[in-house]
Nucleic acid binder design. Structure first.
Lengths: 218, 218
DNA sequence: CAAATTTTTGACCGATTGGACAAACGTTAG
DNA sequence: CTAACGTTTGTCCAATCGGTCAAAAATTTG
């Protein structure tokens, strides 16, 4: 009748589960699901494999739990994108929030990227449901801005994709970015450079400022 | 004295190696290196595991070969970025070439993404050497355009990153793109939409055309 | 054709994997 | 203190992994 599932969580259970999830995030994000072993996660969490399996019965259960939590955090910035306030300011701060997440939660970004790269076998329904709904909704907001002439007319879906791509790139392709830019000389100058660039890209584009070409030569 | 390595390739060897590499690309790009098994690759190539291991002695040898070939193809578009011709046209066609590659060689893109995501354990030297040199060189070209006032002044490295990120996104995050945009209604309208958007993004930015804000109110 | 060589296969191996289990150990409430 | 419950561990298992090997089969060469 009353199964284990119905019983409330113990203090130790809550703590240890959290410990395991933290360790699993570290391992999964670095090696992918199949590339990670329970032993690795257990060691990172400072416990034995059977002990870990006492808290999560299957490897997939850890991954699932991690994934569910991730999606909320991950979509939060987009949810905040609001109709009130200046559109360009709103987009600018959305880009900045996403970039901050790439800086502060690179493991989460990579965990997500790993899942998508392999065809999202475990979260495809969520993408087609929850995610699509949210994006469609926000695309409508952006369309409104375009109709009002507040920003240039373009495809809002691809705009969102390009914001995702450019910001998450700094987390997912971190190794490549570091390799190309060379050793970074302290501080988060790297981050500020990226922020400045992306702001300019999305707001100004590459075309030279209107001044020069506007002045007709004689 | 004369080892196997010195002997020239047989006809069958050439053919079968090609067959294996094609199968391995399929499997590796879908499941990553550790997520793929020799058995899977062998089956995809239509041969037995020991037979496959007759042509490639180790799993890593297949991956290495694949990776070496990939890098040439992958960097070709950037190498073509040339100092001659109009800068904006040059950048536009670079973006288009990269987008075409994401469409025509998505497996290659994912294979590369997988490798980078996991910290590029097998190609880090190549990133810090060959790739960095090439990017630095092209960044200098772009800087020249900026100094000449042909395009707006910005960080050329981050510009290149953002082109990589946005274009490869359509291959690497294909599942997500499809999920959000819904079932695509035939043709490569999807591709053309992305191409149009990226061109607009990189060339025009989001700011509304200069007309309106230029007119100082009162 | 026959010998030499290349290709293919089935059987096998040790290592690693995810996971089961019962026994030992801790903790806590009555 | 003790009984009940929660936690931890060592041992074990079957499946799968990358890879070997010798022998059979196919092919090439003279």
């Amino acid at each position: 009748m009353d199964t284990k599932a119905l019983r409330p969580r113990t203090r130790i259970q809550t703590e240890k589960r959290e410990l395991i999830l933290e360790a699993a995030l570290e391992v999964f994000s670095a090696h992918g699901f199949r590339g990670s072993t329970i032993d690795q996660i257990a060691e990172a969490a400072g416990m034995s494999k059977p002990n870990l399996l006492y808290y999560f019965r299957r490897k997939e259960e850890i991954h699932e739990t991690l994934m569910q939590r991730l999606l909320d955090t991950w979509l939060a910035p987009l949810k905040e994108l609001d109709d009130i306030g200046d559109p360009l300011t709103e987009l600018r701060s959305y880009i900045r929030r996403k970039l901050e997440m790439a800086r502060d939660f690179p493991r989460e970004s990579r965990l997500f990227a790993n899942e998508i790269l392999q065809g999202a076998p475990r979260i495809k329904p969520m993408l087609e449901g929850e995610l699509k709904t949210l994006v469609d909704e926000k695309a409508e907001v952006i369309k409104g801005w375009m109709r009002a002439g507040k920003i240039v007319k373009t495809d809002p879906w691809h705009l969102i994709f390009s914001i995702w791509a450019t910001t998450q790139h700094y987390a997912d392709f971190d190794v490549q970015v570091r390799a190309v830019l060379g050793p970074d000389r302290g501080g988060d100058g790297r981050f500020e450079d990226a922020a400045r660039f992306l702001e300019q890209l999305f707001v100004d584009g590459l075309k030279p400022p209107c001044t020069t070409p506007r002045v007709q030569p004689s």
